[in-house]
Amino acid sequence: MSESNDAADTFISVAHVASELFKAQSIAEELSITSKNARALAVRAGSTAAGFNEITRFIEGLSKLTIDAARSVNTIAISQTKIASDLFRSQSFVSKLDKVDYEPVKGHVNELAPIYDEVNQARSQLERKIRISLRELVDRLDETKMELRATQVVSVVSRVEASRAHEDFQNSLNSVADKVSSAGQRINSHLERARRHLAHLRT
């Protein structure tokens, strides 16, 4: 793997990550609605679905967690894209500078040397910033993914609670469990895709 990431490749990858997280956020928003509907259902189902009420709070928490993660990833992605595009500009600049056919006159200052120094210094700083920011992005994705593992547990517990509820409500409560499970899987698959987009980048 090369010393540094290609700037264009980085901002394209990060843009993909932001797009995956945006999709995950939409699913999490659906999950939030599911949770609110489930709470109303639990109230109607009365004491037999009391346990479900607690679960809805947990679902709401998961949904909020995903939405927060998506927002924070988005913030990181925007700043990452800015840094990467600055890096792209400075890489393009160096490649243009490399083509300048210039030989300083003997005894005169090399006009390009300080520009090279400055741009190389700026490049190193940007590359360092990108690596830090990428690490932060990867950690945030991994953390969210870990926390979302709970959705499968919530789904199983929801089914157990549904089976205890009055039979008039069982189907609806099971459907909530299905939605939680499906949402969890879909969010997870977006997080995995997002993670894959970053896999080839050096952090």
Binding site: K96, L97, K99, V100, D101, Y102, V109, E111, I115
Partner: peptide, 18 residues
């Protein structure tokens, strides 16, 4: 334009300093 920058800088530096 951006595509001519290297040639322009090459030319300009023959006549003046930055």
């Amino acid at each position: 334009g951006v595509e001519l920058f290297s040639q322009m800088l090459t030319s300009v530096l023959r006549y003046t300093t930055l």
